[in-house]
Nucleic acid binder design. Structure first.
Lengths: 245, 245
DNA sequence: CGAGCGATTGATCGCCATCAAAGTGGGTGG
DNA sequence: CCACCCACTTTGATGGCGATCAATCGCTCG
């Protein structure tokens, strides 16, 4: 438990973030080595290929990691939520761009200082590996979705994945997770699932017609029949849950 | 440089493997904590869901990591080559199956002993993170291939990726890497690229007709026009090279 | 109230899957 | 050493899913 008045005391992402392995004084020192920054929706944190001089921990909001092909086709490699970490790479530059889907709040650290700090805090390094392993499992799940699943299966799988993530980030309100919030546009969902927006729209409408979901608004989807939705995913949505120790 | 007669002295994978960060005595101790095993082509090292009690370093041959959907659709998440490491997970069980594509030779360690060893050899942990980060980048590359590329683009990209890997594993002979060896069947390639074998076959024939490649045999493909092949990939084949320090 | 952007719905097209059949090559047994 | 067999690959014909093109809806903001 953090002492009263700790600068990280009110961080919503603290339980999931990389810094969850640090306590009071360590954490204060760590925080002082970095800075907090904000981005408006649509702004870019860094571009693919940019030299990787900083690492980041997302405190609030949603980010998307994107890769572009020269002709403009775009693939979203991942969406990041509070507590997620990004930016550490062994290559010269970043291998994707990072953009704000919603307004975001980010803790930023210089790579050099972060690495130095990690070197003397082995629990940070272990945590780092844990996060990387977790992301790797998620990326492979995504490979399965894109390689072998139909449009309906991808979308059902996506909805349930988001429902699961909302749950383990201990999101604000209802823990029954029947309601999924989609912070991103249909275009973003399409670029994540390898589908066109029209297909996303059509499939969601079809699911609505079958009373699997209810479209409370464009961004809020209520899951009406969890079981049948799970059947549609064709299994394997088990992106393992929270990495919280 | 290892002393003469060292048990790992003749390991072809040594430069790339996890153990590359260990020297003489450390390496001897490490090796003694494990065992060497062999599998014939087609045999399974472990199944998805099996409890993860061991970790492995591939010394010779090719492995495939697969995920199955209940109805039999299969996705190959990755092919592993000499020097690749696998098995370390934070979940209870493995998140994919591992099968031998060719006869393989594997160094096996109990997870518990490996972790204990890593805890007192920080350079192993860093190496581990490096490998995970590298695999993550590769997995995201695969996400791009599957999400946004046409059949021809996927195949061209796959061929060039293999050509690149052969090169940095310092493979036996010719370093100009104009010849790519495909240890896996067309079915495996299809299950990796999210395509059917007929499509693989047709596209390779088309590339042959355009004199981009020559099919020396089913398993050996000679690249005749590297430049045009790179154009076809629609960019972004740059899976960063060898992780050798 | 009107402008503009994102989402939805509709109609048609094209790529790759599917179904089907013929070709190829490696291994075994006679 | 050869003939056969079987599994894998290649090639051909057809069909379906999701992309593309197009029009309308609906919300937000000026």
């Amino acid at each position: 438990m953090l002492e009263a008045g700790h600068p990280c005391g009110d961080c919503a992402a603290r339980c999931r973030a990389i810094c969850s392995v640090l306590e009071n004084d360590e954490l204060k020192t760590f925080r002082k080595s970095g800075a907090t920054m904000r981005l408006a929706a649509g702004e870019t944190l860094f571009y693919e290929g940019d030299p990787a001089r900083s690492v980041y921990s997302l405190a609030r909001g949603t980010l998307r990691l994107t890769k572009m092909l020269p002709d403009g086709r775009r693939q979203i490699a991942d969406f990041l939520f509070p507590g997620d970490f990004l930016g550490l790479t062994l290559e010269e530059g970043h291998s994707f761009s990072a953009e704000a889907v919603t307004p975001v709040e980010i803790c930023r650290f210089s790579s050099a200082r972060f690495e130095a700090f990690a070197a003397i805090h082995p629990q940070l390094e272990r945590r780092l590996y844990a996060l990387a392993a977790h992301e790797l499992a998620a990326a492979r799940q995504q490979v399965l979705r894109l390689g072998r699943k139909s449009a309906a299966e991808r979308i059902a799988s996506f909805l349930l994945m988001l429902a699961g993530r909302e749950q383990d980030s201990g999101s604000t309100t209802k823990s029954n997770a029947r309601e999924v919030f989609l912070p991103m546009s249909r275009t973003d969902i399409g670029d994540y699932l390898g589908l066109r927006i029209e297909t996303i729209s059509r499939e969601l409408s079809a699911m609505k017609a079958q009373k699997l979901i209810r479209l409370a608004s464009t961004q809020r989807i209520e899951i009406l029949d969890l079981e049948r939705l799970e059947d549609i995913t064709a299994g394997e949505t088990n992106v393992p849950g929270c990495v919280c120790a």
